[in-house]
Design a binder for these strands. Structure first.
Lengths: 198, 198, 198, 198
DNA sequence: GATGAATGAGGTTTCATTCAT
DNA sequence: TATGAATGAAACCTCATTCAT
């Protein structure tokens, strides 16, 4: 009811955002609670008023990061018509957000690594991949049904498409001068589209 | 009179292998030098006779891991004839080694994360990706030249192919029950091949 | 409403004083941060809230020790009249403080040794000797100008006087039963005074 | 009997000499047995064939250093005639050996510090000072007896003289550009001689 | 006599976390 | 809600010393 956004919520967000940056720069283990507090401009102990401990903070970041990503992609294609257009809108979002995505890559890989060791993080990632696959599969399935695409296993196709996108990001972060993400993404997706069409 | 294998080399290898396992399990920062020493069955201090410090050990692992991977892939396709067969041999290596690859995934992502923060590690990875791309591009280029594939930018195609493979591994580790790597890899690669053919 | 003495300043002083004692007993390298913490009755880690590291702590002690010594000597002679009286007051300070000086001798020689290896410590000592020489030279110069002393190079005389005092302390600490500091100091100084008079 | 100097004796000497240099550079605690072995060009473990442990090595150095110093001074004045000449010969030795003495100053102060904590080292130093004082006192006593010097307590005079010399070295090492040892020593000694004469 | 290899015992420093104010 | 002060528990790294060869 109260229109004024809760102070607590703001602080929580502040901390999560600062922590995301700090973790991306130093890694989960090398970044200290003090580094994060300094980035927010508060005292180290204050973080503990908002998060039980470092692990909980990391978990919160994982949730926000992957949920946000999902929401962004979901929104992107809602406006489009054909399956092709919707898939295109999807990866163009990535291209557009390029400069925002780059600094998050380190923390993304940290999460991929951490998720294989911590169940709560794994759950977040598994869920993200599951939902994303579902999202893409649904679009592809539509395309198949309305004759845009040749009949195929939509889930496998969805995974292939997402795999290609994820993998392309890896090439990009490790060879930024050599790889033109934009072109490379378009190229890869066209390749797959051509495979799907008929 | 086979020259008795240098004790030092053996120890070095022992340590690297044990460390790889330990790091894969706990992560670079959470794993302690003592954990590693225990895994080898030696004293903590002994590791320092073979590696200057933890970072140097991690670096040595990176080199061995990526170089080994590259060598494995390189060897795999040497025996084949057509470009298609050679590319196929390439990803079938991945499928065959599945059980060996899985436990390395955590350390692989650790490296992808760490490489974005440490120049020496970044260099190893960049080099790996570069060489791998070159390897695949050469095969594809051959295919284009002998008419197996339609004309295309071989490097972009190579990146697309590798991206798809890398990305598929990610789906696999995070949804092992849901994803049949074998089928998924074949599916994705077929998709790309179909795009390349004509 | 006297401003309540800063807790931090108090702790800092506590630590410096305890560390001085501990270092005097065990030497800079043999004394551990834990020894010092125990002497203060705090945790080892707490010291690091007040000093960046062991070296910084040692540096702080050097500054306090030599500055304090200088201040003590400076104060001592301010009240006197003739140059002779002022010089006398100076070394009588040493005699009076005998029991306080003795336990500091080990750390003093540690500093003399360390100063030849660490620039920051060397600077403190060099400055101390420089100032001390200046102090004594000024008094001697006055004595020369008002006819108390025969004309001489005041700086050389000052160094000779201080050298004799320092050297006498060495004899004293290494032969405390044999050397009566009081008598020995008086004797030496008289010798020099006799040399200066006319 | 055997004129060929024992190999063992040579090694022992080699080690002592190398260790003296290394200790002078790094201090007793910072210098490692390996540093010393490297300086000799032998293996770390070999040192233990010649010395029981690090402390024993340090002790051996102390003995050699102070005994040698004493022998040097003793020899110096043997040839002279008057007490004055003999005392003069004594400090001129110091001046002549200046370049050899300077690099030993750090280890000398280390010993002065260590001697206040380790009985075996203390004994060496106490003995050195005792003998040196005796040496000088004997000369002065002669001077008194043959009328060169006015009657005085020869031991006190000896200590004063040595104190002045030791103290002058301190000024010198900490202000080498400012202090002309040669001149300063002469000045100081003249001052004392003038006090002794009549 | 000499050494390569190994280790036990520590020492410095860091840091997540707590708590009184 | 916020924080200054403190700490327990490590972790990395070093080094004197030993010993089999």
């Amino acid at each position: 009811m109260s229109p004024k956004p809760n102070v607590t919520t703001m602080r929580t967000t502040q901390i999560i955002e600062a922590a995301t940056t700090v973790f991306a720069e130093k890694g989960f283990d090398r970044a200290t609670m003090e580094d994060i507090a300094d980035a927010v401009g508060i005292n180290k102990a204050t973080i503990y008023l908002y998060f039980d401990n470092k692990d909980a903070l990391i978990h919160a970041i994982a949730e926000r990061l992957f949920d946000q990503e999902l929401a962004g992609l979901q929104a992107a294609h809602d406006l489009q018509n054909t399956a092709m257009e919707r898939l295109t809108a999807y990866y163009e979002t990535l291209i557009t957000e390029e400069s925002e995505v780059m600094p998050l890559m380190p923390i993304l890989y940290e999460f991929y690594a951490l998720g294989l060791r911590r169940d709560d993080v794994r759950a977040v990632i598994t869920d993200f991949i599951h939902q994303l696959t579902g999202l893409l599969a649904a679009i592809i399935q539509e395309g198949v049904e309305n004759g845009e695409f040749a009949p195929t296993d939509a889930r496998q196709a969805a995974r292939a498409l997402d795999a290609l996108l994820s993998g392309t990001l890896l090439h990009w972060v490790y060879a930024p001068e050599e790889v033109d993400v934009d072109a490379q993404l378009r190229y890869g997706v066209q390749l797959i589209f051509r495979g799907l069409l008929h």
